[in-house]
């Protein structure tokens, strides 16, 4: 295999690893106090106006009806259309929406390249002249590839211009914010130039993926193609390492905090976890914190008048 193929493999592995580490970090964070924020979309019949089961008389004696369909609907409109941004910040949505939608298409494109690569590796052709399946995969790859790259590019450029020109925004941007957008735009432009010029159907790129899958040396049809592949690989690795991996955190912010309204009942797992946490030792220094004691002990201490 060529060196750049190793770069691609390493990048993809690091990307997966980074995502897994992040998921584990958030998933294993300790049970916290409840901190939900309404509306909570799985509140059946109440989510429209932001109501909760606390509205009911003797709520703990009633069955709780969760509307998972509504929660999924809410998630889908948040993920696909960025509903929250659309409602609360239209200026940003004009660029953020094409940017994110473009990225989804690019992810689809990468999966289609992978699928095409596998088909290539096992000898099933993927092209405009291939059988039905090969033909469908070919056209889907072309459509998702170009649409994804163009939308992502326009979105990233728009977001860059907004960050540079909006005086409210500027003081809060770090170098990383600019760099991320420019990096993405650079990769997009390079990919478009490369493929529109010499690989319009992404056949070489598919071949590159197929070569990795079968541990064969890949055909690199030119320097530009080589640079594109290296930069794209680095981008795939960089996204989960940077704040651009906020999709992971967003899941937890919504499900483990904002919408987390599971009541704690006697003998529950939540209660068990909390009881264990009360055994943690405090080292806060203020006198009323009773440093050295456990949380369980400290909060039972008699208060001194101050």
């Amino acid at each position: 295999m060529e060196v750049i193929q190793y770069v691609t493999i390493a990048s993809v592995l690091i990307a997966f690893l980074a995502i897994i580490v992040k998921v584990i970090k958030y998933a294993t964070a300790p049970e916290s106090m409840r901190w939900e924020l309404y509306p909570v979309p799985h509140e059946k019949g109440r989510s429209e106006y932001g109501g909760s089961y606390f509205e009911e008389l003797d709520w703990w004696t009633k069955p709780r009806h969760s509307d998972m369909f509504n929660e999924m609907k809410e998630m889908a409109s948040e993920i696909i259309f960025l509903k929250g941004v659309l409602h609360n910040n239209k200026r940003v949505w004009r660029f953020s929406f094409p940017f994110h939608f473009g990225l989804y298409l690019c992810i689809g494109w990468l999966f289609l390249l992978l699928l095409g690569g596998i088909m290539d590796a096992v000898g099933v052709g993927v092209s405009a002249d291939a059988g039905v399946f090969g033909l469908v995969v070919h056209y889907l790859t072309v459509i998702s590839g170009y649409a994804g790259l163009i939308l992502t590019g326009i979105g990233a450029f728009g977001l860059f211009v907004w960050r540079v020109t909006d005086s409210n925004q500027r003081p809060y941007n770090s170098f990383a914010e600019y760099f991320n957008l420019l990096f993405i735009d650079a990769v997009v432009v390079l990919a478009l130039i490369t493929h529109l010029g010499s690989d319009p159907g992404f056949a070489y790129l598919r071949g590159y993926v197929a070569a990795i899958l079968s541990f064969e040396p890949a055909v690199i049809p030119g320097t530009l193609f080589g640079i594109e592949v290296v930069l794209m690989s680095l981008l795939i690795m960089y996204i989960p390492l940077s704040r651009m991996s906020h999709f992971v955190a967003k899941y937890f912010l919504y499900h483990a905090v904002r919408w987390h309204d599971e009541p704690n009942v006697r003998g529950s797992k939540i209660e068990k976890r909390l009881t264990e946490l009360l055994g943690k030792k405090i080292s806060w220094s203020a006198e009323h914190m009773h440093p050295g004691k456990t949380w369980g002990e400290a909060v039972q201490e008699k208060e001194n008048e101050q």
Binding site: P30, E31, V257, W284
Partner: peptide, 26 residues
């Protein structure tokens, strides 16, 4: 965790994931 298990999860998530869009200001 020892000193702030009570709010560590939401705090950490909020500290690490602001995308600086300023939607909250208005």
């Amino acid at each position: 965790v020892e000193n702030n298990w009570t709010f560590l999860k939401p705090f950490m998530l909020s500290m690490e994931n602001c995308v600086k869009c300023n939607t909250c200001s208005e």
